[in-house]
Nucleic acid binder design. Structure first.
Lengths: 211, 211
DNA sequence: CAAAATTAATCAATCGATTGATTAATTAAC
DNA sequence: GTTAATTAATCAATCGATTGATTAATTTTG
């Protein structure tokens, strides 16, 4: 039971840290606040994860591994390039919609230069994101080669897919004004935003890639 | 001549601050570093701009006013909706390409929740960005109404335009890996990225909006 | 009791900001 | 036009607060 509680408590801290890091950013989330929000003593953070950076690393690693694997599996299937792209979009939007804080963390990590220039967490994030985009690139290039897709700018198409999703998630305060909604809470995100975003990307990619 | 020197020094600090804020983020850019990079004493920062927050505000306000005006002028012209959208894209990409640090600052400002929940700078940024997007929304809706555009999802189209550009600028480290370039310096950004991004957006919007 | 888990207290370092003092530049006085 | 008075610009030193992290003491568990 102690073992169970320990795991639950670590897990709980990870969940809280993901939210607080996502809301306030790495610097904005002090170790004191993180511990307080998780309902535990400050020293427990270092006891569990060694340091604040270790906590961020744990938060990030927890989610990236499974996502990367999903991308790989999609790329390996024996289906049309269009079906692959559809699955990629579906997967990515779902991942983002169910863990919006996490993707804010990720995006910030690759957009801000850490003191000293490099960081273990940043490198890990960059490597995983790059691997994911490479699968998308492969799918697009294959589709073009087979004549299934128009000869579009592959890299820009990738930027368009990920950029559109990121924009809606990372700037929710602006997005909610544009969409004329009070706030983009989880329910609205899941029930309205997600299908709408999927429909748009589907339509946009179809008109741009096919024919 | 004394007057001249004073203005130059404030302006110089603004330029340096824009770069350092963009590279390291607001928290990562300490007042000591900012002053050091600008080659002046720390106290001068407060002397000129009152506070660190005042400096950020000055950096932001300097660029947002002109951009907002440009958006307004485009929307008012008596040309086709398609030509308006083309001009909007051209303007935005140019602005981003010539001041990449600034747009990283902007995007971070609307993506991170400031301590206390609200901030004068954040509100200013949000209001201006919202005004810009409203012009784009108006252009798109007008084009749809006139039958010039397909009945696309207007808000998602806006997210796609701004999101794609933001993605390339804000995650340059990832983008440079995707694009297989050592680094996205200013020259590469201007001479390769910018025309390529413009061509893509032009093609993408054409296939998605027209016909 | 011994080991693990948890806490309170405290650490050095760094943060943004302010102080008082000094110099440079501008204006006012005669 | 020269000196006196005033303002602007700049600096080193330092403030209190907060940061992430560590220590030592205490409690819980097995």
């Amino acid at each position: 039971m102690a073992e169970k509680e320990k795991i639950d408590k670590k897990e709980h801290l990870l969940n809280v840290a993901e939210r607080v890091f996502g809301e306030l950013g790495y610097d904005g989330a002090s170790t004191r606040l993180l511990a307080q929000e998780a309902g535990m003593n400050m020293a427990m953070l270092n006891y569990y994860f060694g340091s604040k950076d270790g906590l961020l690393k744990a938060v990030v690693e927890r989610r990236m591994a499974s996502t990367r694997k999903s991308f790989e599996e999609i790329a390996l299937q024996d289906i049309s390039s269009w079906d692959k792209i559809t699955q990629v979009v579906q997967l990515y939007v779902s991942k983002v919609a169910t863990s919006k804080y996490f993707h804010k963390i990720i995006f910030r990590e690759i957009s801000v230069l850490r003191p000293g220039g490099t960081s273990e967490v940043t490198d890990f994030v960059l490597e995983n994101l790059y691997a994911n985009t490479m699968h998308v690139q492969q799918i697009l290039e294959e589709g073009i080669k087979k004549g299934e897709f128009r000869p579009v700018d592959v890299e820009m198409t990738i930027a368009s897919i990920f950029g559109t999703v990121n924009y809606l998630i990372n700037s929710r305060r602006l997005a909610s004004k544009i969409l004329n909604m009070d706030l983009l809470d989880d329910q609205v995100l899941q029930e309205e935003m997600k299908p709408r975003l999927l429909a748009y990307l589907h339509d946009s990619l179809k008109t741009h890639l096919l024919k």
